[in-house]
Amino acid sequence: MKIRKETGKELALDFLYDIVGGGIFAIGTHCFVSPSNIAPGGASGIAIMFNYLFNLPIGTMIFVVNVPLMILAYKYIGKGFTLRTLKSVVVSSLMLDVVVAPFFPQYVGDELLGSLFGGVITGAGLAIVFMRDSTTGGSDIAGRLIQVRWPHIPIGQAMLFFDVTVLLVSILVFGSIESGLYGLICMFVCSKVIDGIIYGMDKGTMAVIVSDKTREIAEKVMEEMERGVTLLKGVGAYSGEDKEVALCAVARSQFHRLKTIAYEVDPRAFIIVSEAGEILGEGFKDIKKD
């Protein structure tokens, strides 16, 4: 009974984050990015081009573009990731077409301001979705699928390749090099906002946690996040006391949750965070022999 309650609570939080994050993302896309004729990569960029050419709803097109990607993700990446992504994509698409587009005005002024504000707002919305270990599809799925086919390509580079391709196509669709340049600015600002809110890059994050309650933190991380934790033996240089240090590697979208768990268990925990260039092993990139 307790497990069911916890599951229901987590699912409710997932939807809450999706609604808030999807709503913010929808505002940035509808109010600033789309009217500036900017297609800053990903499924949303493709959807904006369809809207420009055929006047099709952006939210609906984001969903349509993601459908084939999610089918491939279900087959090659996994059921859990695909279902979480599907949930977030549906919510954000509905927020765009049903809540934001009919009622929110569009900014039709300077394109540079549109790209800057669009990048900030969409980045904030995406960061909120990432906090619950989910994504809005598009580049995230495409990047992971590219890496399945070519494992030697880092996922960050795979995502960049997909986004740049969309950006180059947008120059032809909008008939303006400036649209591509503004789209590049929007992409850059968006990525910086995401990093600033949740910390971490696509390559992964490694955290070293020093606490008097290290085992409790490790148990909660393994139970709630399904991530492995390694306990290292240590000695406090000042106190001379034996300590256990937790070492844990997580994806960028999981770091916020890891930090929250650590401070829920021990508000005085000491956490050292560093970027991991590549994470190999169970739960991350498979180690394949050439």
Rank of each mutant, 00 (worst) to 15 (best):
S239W: 01
M49V: 08
E275G: 11
V108S: 06
F32V: 10
T136G: 00
A12F: 12
K213G: 00
I287K: 14
T60Q: 12
L113Q: 03
D212T: 12
K75Y: 06
P267N: 07
E178V: 14
M222H: 10
I197N: 09
G114R: 00
K75N: 09
R257K: 15
V221G: 07
R215G: 00
L231W: 06
L69W: 01
E244P: 06
K289M: 11
T260C: 06
V67R: 06
G240V: 06
L181S: 05
Y107I: 01
V245T: 03
E216M: 02
S179K: 09
V100H: 08
E264W: 00
N55V: 14
G277Y: 08
S170W: 00
G118N: 01
T122E: 01
G59I: 01
S139W: 02
G137D: 00
L280F: 11
E223D: 13
M206L: 14
D14K: 02
S115G: 14
Q254R: 03
S134D: 01
V221D: 12
A262F: 02
V173W: 02
Y263P: 01
S274W: 01
N55K: 14
F103H: 13
R252Y: 13
K233P: 08
E264S: 10
V169Q: 02
S253H: 10
D163A: 03
M225F: 07
G118M: 03
